[in-house]
């Protein structure tokens, strides 16, 4: 039995090891990737993103409770940032999901972003595939606490829930480009705050000002700590999923994204840290005006 057979058969330890293998990019990773592709495409993939401290982890924990009541098994990928200085990380999301630890229908894995920008880690799409192959009905991805432009999650998840907290900004913040635009569902969490209604109103106004006919994005107000509104959120997501269920086309799309991220990171690593004489000479040629940028990029891509 190999790792992929084992994890498909429900061996959680094999799943945990396979995730490390793909994260670390070791020799096992290629074999796991090859084995995996025929076994993916069944899970509903739901992303949760939003600013740090908005309550994403707590809200996910409350949402898991609803999914479990409905009999759905859940894999969670919780991404937190890595230090740009030391590469270390404190991964604290699962501390907010502790109530599910005794439940074998829930598997939580923390990932450090490891220098990847955009809100995820380079291996995250691959980890989605692993959890999908392991048979989880729903795979939830929590991004790092995002600013305005970490929109990568939209390419990975079928449903993107953007979680806001009251009082983080006025109506001007609500109409800026970026994270607002990728939402399939908008959540105002901490709904027990006096500012929650105003925040929801700003978001509603921002969506409906769009001259080209507004996008129908549901806005749900929740209080994750008490569970208020989480049932509405669960119903909203279920409704969206019934319109757009997971499709076999999702997995190839994820694979492509992963390869793009890895190729870019590989090249960046070589360019910034490497001591490759070929790369040095390309850089010198560009600096000396003897080599055009487009041709330099072609040559660099071949080296990577």
């Amino acid at each position: 039995m190999n790792l992929v057979d084992d994890l498909t058969a429900g061996d959680r330890r094999a799943l945990a090891r396979a995730i490390s293998a793909v994260e670390d990019g070791g020799p096992e990773a290629a074999a796991v990737l090859a084995e995996l592709q025929s076994r993916v495409g069944k899970a509903a993939v739901i992303g949760f993103t939003g600013p740090p401290g908005a309550g994403k982890s707590t809200l996910i924990s409350a949402y898991i409770t609803h999914l479990r009541r409905a009999g759905r098994s859940v894999g969670v990928i919780a991404v937190d940032p890595s230090s740009p200085l030391t590469g270390g990380a404190v991964l604290g999301d699962r501390a907010r999901m502790a109530s599910h630890i005794d439940d074998d229908g829930v598997f939580i894995r923390s990932l450090a972003a490891r220098g990847h920008l955009g809100g995820l880690s380079a291996a995250a799409p691959f980890v989605v595939d692993l959890m999908d192959a392991a048979g989880f009905d729903v795979v939830i991805i929590e991004t790092v606490g995002t600013g305005q432009s970490e929109v990568e999650i939209a390419g990975l998840a079928g449903i993107t829930v953007v979680v806001f907290a009251p009082g983080l900004g006025d109506h001007l913040q609500a109409i800026k480009a970026g994270i607002m635009e990728i939402a399939t569902v908008l959540v105002v969490n901490k709904g027990d705050s006096p500012l929650a209604a105003a925040t929801a109103a700003h978001l509603y106004a921002a969506l409906h000002l769009n001259a080209g006919g507004h996008r129908e994005v549901p806005i749900v107000t929740t209080t994750a700590t008490t569970g208020d509104g989480v049932g509405d959120l669960a119903e909203t997501i279920a409704g969206l999923l019934s319109v757009r269920p997971p499709s076999p086309a999702d997995a190839p799309r994820r694979l492509r994204r992963m390869l793009a991220a890895l190729a870019a990171e590989n090249l960046k690593e070589k360019l910034l840290r490497g001591t490759n004489p070929e790369i040095d000479s390309i850089c010198d040629e560009v600096r000396g005006g003897r080599l055009g940028l487009a041709e330099a990029l072609r040559q660099l891509a071949r080296i990577a």
Binding site: R12, S20, G88, A89, V90, L91, I101, I108
Partner: peptide
């Protein structure tokens, strides 16, 4: 340079072990 997974307060022994297994 460590990746630290912090589980917070009030964990049972089984909870710590299960989390460590899931996190490899």
């Amino acid at each position: 340079g460590f990746e630290v997974i912090y589980l917070g307060l009030h964990n049972s022994a089984d909870a710590v072990v299960k989390a460590a297994l899931q996190e490899n």
